[in-house]
């Protein structure tokens, strides 16, 4: 009996429409964009940690980034696109999920879900807000720039005059409000990723039986590491280690 209607190998159009139309496709998009953003976050964190080396190192690094020209814009565009895809797929999936249970339970009890997993939407939303503020603050210099005007350009050892990004960071984080806001933001990022890392790996089917217990611990550990890496800079400024 010929019941398996054989179709030609899927063309790219078929692949996109299938992935776009299915929960697993949407989830995979969310996972892949999420992992890419995580990768960026680690790079970004590594950059920040150069604050501990000193102004020369940090400003050299910042200048290097600034001078990348087209590549810089490509990366920025890529990050925006990834963020958009991440949010777009999250909204799509969330809308579907809400529709899947129109009547809520009168009595609802959680058994296994972690705090991070239960708060993904909230933590994601706040992190988005935080990133927006972060960009307006340090990239476009639109908000929270009190004191920036007094910072002179920095002269690198090679004699180049560059923006003193190091000093901007120190000035900003000497304001406890901004420091705490920043720490809160990265804390929520950590919370988001405490579920996000292992969840994205599960969604992509990477976790087989042998690796699952390891990744179940690795996800929150990486998230914690990321949080610590980001939070330690404003903390160091606040307590005066970085001046």
């Amino acid at each position: 009996m010929e019941d398996a209607v054989s179709q030609p190998s899927p063309g790219i159009g078929k692949v996109i429409s299938r992935m776009h139309g299915s929960t697993l496709g949407q989830k995979a998009l969310m996972a892949v964009s999420g992992i890419a953003l995580i990768a960026f976050s680690f790079g970004h964190m590594a950059g920040h940690l150069q604050m501990f080396v000193g102004a020369e190192q940090y400003n050299t690094y910042a200048h290097f980034l600034q001078s990348m020209g087209g590549i810089k814009w490509a990366i920025r565009f890529g990050l925006v696109a990834l963020t958009f895809l991440h949010i777009f797929s999250a909204v799509q999936v969330s809308m579907r999920n809400r529709a899947a249970r129109p009547i809520a339970y009168a009595n609802n009890k959680w058994i296994a879900a972690s705090l991070g997993s239960k708060t993904m939407r909230a933590s994601g939303g706040i992190v988005l807000f935080f990133i927006g503020y972060h960009i307006l603050h340090f990239t476009t210099l639109t908000v929270g720039t009190a004191g920036f005007e007094k910072i002179p350009e920095y002269k690198l050892i090679n004699g180049l005059m560059v923006d003193d990004v190091y000093r901007r960071m120190v000035v900003s984080f000497q304001n406890p409000l901004l420091a705490i806001g920043y720490i809160t933001g990265v804390a929520l990022l950590g919370l988001h990723l405490s579920h996000g890392i292992q969840s994205s790996l599960q969604t992509l089917g990477v976790l087989n039986s042998a690796y699952r217990p390891f990744f179940k611990k690795l996800g929150p550990a990486l998230a914690g590491f990321l949080f610590a890496g980001f939070a330690i800079v404003p903390l160091a400024v606040l307590v005066g280690i970085i001046k």
Partner: peptide
Amino acid sequence: EGFGACSNLQE
């Protein structure tokens, strides 16, 4: 069928 997507909460 209108089932939701998995959020990997493991409930």
